[in-house]
Design a protein around this nucleic acid. Sequence first.
RNA 1: GCCUCCUUAGCUCAGUCGGUAGAGCGUCUCACUCGUAAUGAGAAGGUCGCCGGUUCGAUUCCGGCAGGAGGCUCCA
Length: 669
Amino acid sequence: MSVPENITLIVDGEENVVTTGTTGADLFGDRRDVVVVRVDGELKDLDQPIPAGAEVEPVTIASADGLNVLRHSAAHVMAQAVQQLRPDAKLGIGPYITDGFYFDFDVEEPFTPEDLKQLEKSMLKIVNSNQKFRRRAVSEDEARAEMAEEPYKLELIGLKGASDEAGEGADVEVGGAELTIYDNVDARSGDVVWKDLCRGPHLPNTKLISNAYALTRSAAAYWRGSEKNKQLQRIYGTAWPTKDDLKAYQERLAEAERRDHRKLGSELDLFSFPDELGSGLPVFHPKGGIIRKAMEDYSRQRHTEAGYEFVYTPHITKGHLYEVSGHLDWYRDGMFPPMHVDAELNEDGTVRKPGQDYYLKPMNCPMHTLIYRSRGRSYRELPLRLFEFGSVYRYEKSGVIHGLTRVRGMTQDDAHIYCTREQMKDELTGTLNFVLGLLKDYGLDDFYLELSTKDPEKFVGSDELWEEATRTLAEVAEASGLELVPDPGGAAFYGPKISVQAKDAIGRTWQMSTIQLDFNTPERFGIEFQAPDGTRQRPVMIHRALFGSVERFMAVLTEHYAGAFPAWLAPVQVVAIPVAETFNDYLFDVVDRLKAEGIRAEVDISSDRFPKKIRTASKDKVPFVLIAGGEDAEAGAVSFRFRDGSQDNGVPVDEAVRRIVEAVRSRAK
RNA sequence: GCCUCCUUAGCUCAGUCGGUAGAGCGUCUCACUCGUAAUGAGAAGGUCGCCGGUUCGAUUCCGGCAGGAGGCUCCA
């Protein structure tokens, strides 16, 4: 019988003397929002004794860590419900993720939407029964014995200590220093009703999950993330501290759905994907065409100003080019299969002339490099900046094609810069600034950078070259003052890259521009320039795309603006609506003046009633609605109605034209 | 590519327990001419994604293919 001794803890920065065995619950038991504690930086269950001298902080349910714990515990409750419904279900992993959680199961029959509804109900029963989560350290043998019926858990036990290899999410099960099992203990009987091999920590009890959770979808997922493995059935869910938080989250999803470019694209008549063309091959309708043309025209203007030269290359080429570039080695699966042409056979079927393979081009760089190589180059020409809206075709796997963001035929705003090694840093800096400035002009202005570095499994070129290039990119990125996130192993085989990640109007991030160094292509194509000292030297090559693909960028802008494009990009910039037919001619005069200034303006002379015309213009998200009735006509004025519903009435026509022209020319948002 | 689900009028969606279909919006016509998000009436529009099978008969059941959605894997 040991007598309790006093120990000292640092609680929330202040020293506290408590007895040994004091737990987080003892310290913070009166605060219902505290779900776990951070002990010397590590999250621990509330019922765990805290060692002497430790620094302890409370972690509330609404904090980032607290939300993760809540969601992880919700995943356990879901798994318990699943094993009630399907006793044969074998457990995979069940981690928290952004905004929610999932759990993988090996089951005979996939889950149906009805199953999800029923599971939500049984989860509520479990939540309300107020089970305790109880942590228990076990030896490996004990774990194997207890998890004998769970083959996937046994596999994870075998992988303990190598959780990096176990697959994403596996560290929540076996990532800790010791193996632990969490029992779910019934509040009344004290019986263990369910258990799972898990690192924890967990909520003290299920009650805290309340009714602020939802199961969102089911889908298949490969065990341990490899397509070589069996597919398990995954159920996704979300959980929040309060029902209001859950509703706010669901509203966020609804908002994203309203902005979906696929939906807006057909509502606003911008583009479509005719089945007749094949998956991932979009066509742009006149209204989408205007937006695209405005985007491209402005891009061309800026590239001209920044010293780029324009080139044009074909969409198809003999295969040899991609043998030289290495694309057929590295990316053959991602290319459309070749067309074999020009073969001639003898009557007996033997080959008289072997013919050739032609490929649709998946990248523009080899062709730009041929332009470089078309004649000898002098150092005086460098940096040589070749730009093209280059259409490329990639055989994306059918399951990954998605609207305009992942297609099989797209147009890159692609440039390749050839420069000396000494010019490389200035050129990269200039390019990054150019890219960021231009993105801002299109309305994106919240960025961070990602630095993708060498994949040790997949690269060409010397280590020294990679080191120099990576260091240069890092210096350039840091000089920009933007946040820089490392992406180890994310580089393409031929060189490291910086990518610009942009946040949109509702806080989602999109990978936009990339600036990439390439050591492979200059080498493979043997390109050179003559230096001041007369020697021949190899240039450095920089790939950069700003939109990435024009199609994808248009999708991002559509979602960013929710279809309400700034006036300079809007397909129709002005709709003039007469209060009655009598004023048609008056508005035609106004519209003619706008058209003379290059403004896309029209008069709504349909037989609809006035309010209906307002509604139509509003649904079309037209930036400026000009209205004229008797009062306006007499005053030589028009009335503005803006997209937010606000009005500015009785504006003199000269003034109105001036305002609209100014908004368009300045590319105002 | 893999898993689950889906495909009915231009769009959004009903419907047929196997007997070839219906609404709203949009379109067209006529009437109405109205001051800030839906005037009324009428009409047109579909071999129910495509191909095959079962059946007296298939939009409905079965199979294949194509396209789509959500995931997984992938994304130069």
